[in-house]
Measured scan of single mutants.
Amino acid sequence: CHSECLGNCSQPDDPTKCVACRNFYLDGRCVETCPPPYYHFQDWRCVNFSFCQDLHHKCKNSRRQGCHQYVIHNNKCIPECPSGYTMNSSNLLCTPCLGPCPKVCHLLEGEKTIDSVTSAQELRGCTVINGSLIINIRGGNNLAAELEANLGLIEEISGYLKIRRSYALVSLSFFRKLRLIRGETLEIGNYSFYALDNQNLRQLWDWSKHNLTITQGKLFFHYNPKLCLSEIHKMEEVSGTKGRQERNDIALKTNGDQASCENELLKFSYIRTSFDKILLRWEPYWPPDFRDLLGFMLFYKEAPYQNVTEFDGQDACGSNSWTVVDIDPPLRSNDPKSQNHPGWLMRGLKPWTQYAIFVKTLVTFSDERRTYGAKSDIIYVQTDATNPSVPLDPISVSNSSSQIILKWKPPSDPNGNITHYLVFWERQAEDSELFELDYCLKGLKLPSRTWSPPFESEDSQKHNQSEYEDSAGECCSCPKTDSQILKELEESSFRKTFEDYLHNVVFVPRKT
């Protein structure tokens, strides 16, 4: 048989008469490798580009789960590009990614509803959504962080984005990388972005840091009482949809009607710091009717980097990364020049730590249904340095008659930039024990000054392991946590139920 035959053949030295091919099969003959313009397919066939392209389009058009959109890589027609490569849609070739590779997620039936953290986790790592997304989240724990972890990498949506009755959302900033909504599939009414009845939605994105392009379709905003109209108009300008909307697409009466839409800028007039305090004062603000001013709200939190936005980490279910302080308005003076500047002394802060701070007014709604208010920009203030805590785990070892090696770990709280350490030492008198000992005694162990690591005695271990207080009263049991108490109650309830079950099964009433 021919060298490319495997198993047997019907005619000697003829690659077209093989029972099976050793390498690849091409047009009725066995070959060692697939010549151009053919590609290896499933490690035994040679196919042309049209064959591989037909497989790709067949799966793409069917949208069946589990099928493969075949691509070409290293002269092979394979189910998908290997790690580190992405497909070129024009020629199906796998090309190296520039940075992290995109991950295209194809949605069944063309859309997916995100109504819980669990459903959001199914899209973790996706960068391109081939379909439409509907966000409908009523509640949950730590929602802002969970949504950002699972949806934060999405850069492109081919269909539309719909935010509907998501009472738990305060902001859409968890879509931190969303840059493009194509609108290839539109919501009824030709809408590519749809926001309806979101009672706590206050911000779409921080438009000073976020760009969003909507290729096709219109915007729809109705019944978002805490979303200011200025935020919607800003989205029109940034996304390129200005002029597409009709009169009733953006409701003037049901958007922002319960919001404090600040239209003035508060400026800080005085800032002073110490290692654990920050004193702030800002310019006074009074609405047209000074009785509408209820006070100020001061927001602050630790910020290692200057990239904080107002609604980071917030949701309507209680999660809030900001510390909020309510401040009463100052006494009002008739003389504008003698107006008191409101302020606040922030206490209990960490030394040498940068804080993000902003302040906003708290006002009631005027009778004319106009909203007044003022808010400052987010500023960054760093507390002063102070003395560091003591170095940890000092170790001293003498390696000769004239040297001592000293080692330690950095302090747990540096409280500033540590530039150097101060080492103090003092000579001590020799131990009298060394002169009084009889060095001729056998088995004498000389006193040693070398360091030995501390260890816990058996008594201390027994005390720590004991669940009861000892007789001397030195140790006591740790208080039980809520989960331990709940577990004990469940076990007790189970024992009672099981005992009742045994009584009912074992003891049967005697027939009379």
Rank of each mutant, 00 (worst) to 15 (best):
K103I: 09
C105G: 00
H106Q: 12
L107V: 09
L107F: 04
L107C: 03
L108W: 09
L108S: 11
L108P: 14
E109L: 07
E109I: 03
G110V: 02
G110N: 15
K112T: 15
I114L: 08
S116G: 04
V117M: 13
T118M: 07
A120R: 01
E122F: 02
E122K: 14
G125V: 13
C126T: 01
T127S: 11
V128A: 15
G131E: 01
G131C: 02
L133E: 00
I134Y: 15
I135F: 08
N136M: 02
R138L: 05
G140R: 11
L143S: 15
A144S: 11
A144T: 03
E146M: 09
L151T: 03
L153P: 12
I154Y: 01
E155R: 15
E155K: 15
E156A: 12
I157G: 00
S158V: 07
S158K: 04
Y160C: 14
Y160W: 06
L161E: 00
K162T: 08
S166D: 01
Y167L: 15
Y167H: 04
L169K: 00
S171T: 09
S171L: 01
F174H: 05
F175E: 01
R179V: 05
R179Q: 10
L180K: 09
I181S: 01
G183N: 00
E184I: 08
L186Q: 04
G189A: 11
N190T: 15
Y191T: 07
S192V: 05
F193A: 02
F193N: 01
Y194Q: 07
Y194D: 07
L196R: 14
D197R: 03
N200T: 02
N200A: 04
L201T: 03
L204C: 12
W205L: 11
W205T: 02
D206Q: 09
D206K: 13
S208N: 11
L212M: 08
T213M: 06
I214S: 06
I214D: 01
I214A: 06
T215K: 06
Q216N: 04
G217A: 03
L219F: 10
L219I: 07
H222S: 10
K226H: 15
K226Y: 13
L227I: 07
L229F: 15
H233G: 02
H233Q: 09
E237G: 04
E237C: 04
V238S: 06
G240S: 06
G240N: 08
K242R: 11
K242S: 06
G243F: 13
R244T: 07
Q245W: 15
E246A: 04
R247I: 14
L252F: 04
T254K: 14
N255R: 04
G256A: 14
D257C: 14
Q258S: 12
A259R: 12
A259G: 05
A259Q: 14
L265S: 11
K267S: 08
F268Y: 07
F268G: 00
F268S: 01
I271K: 15
T273F: 12
S274M: 04
K277T: 15
K277M: 05
I278P: 00
L279T: 02
R281W: 13
R281M: 12
P284E: 10
Y285P: 02
P288F: 04
D289R: 05
D289T: 04
F290M: 06
F290L: 08
D292K: 01
L293P: 05
G295P: 06
G295F: 15
F296D: 03
F296P: 01
M297A: 13
L298D: 01
F299A: 15
Y300F: 03
Y300T: 10
Y300E: 01
K301E: 02
E302A: 05
P304S: 05
Y305Q: 01
Q306F: 14
N307D: 15
V308N: 01
T309L: 15
C317R: 03
C317H: 04
G318R: 12
S319D: 14
S319Q: 09
N320I: 03
S321I: 05
T323N: 10
P329V: 04
P329S: 10
P330K: 07
L331A: 06
L331P: 05
N334A: 12
D335T: 13
K337Y: 12
S338Q: 11
Q339F: 15
N340P: 07
N340Y: 10
H341G: 08
P342A: 12
G343C: 06
W344G: 12
W344K: 10
W344M: 02
W344E: 03
L345M: 06
M346G: 05
M346P: 00
R347C: 09
R347L: 09
L349K: 01
P351F: 13
P351S: 08
W352C: 06
T353F: 09
Q354Y: 15
Q354M: 00
Q354T: 13
A356S: 04
I357H: 00
F358S: 04
V359F: 02
V359S: 02
K360N: 06
T361D: 01
T361W: 03
L362R: 15
V363G: 15
D367H: 02
D367A: 03
R370Q: 04
I378R: 03
I379F: 06
Q382P: 04
Q382R: 08
T383R: 00
T386R: 09
T386Y: 04
N387H: 15
S389M: 15
V390P: 13
P391R: 01
P391L: 07
D393F: 15
D393K: 14
S396P: 12
S396Y: 02
V397L: 14
S401I: 15
Q403H: 15
I404Y: 02
I405R: 12
K409S: 09
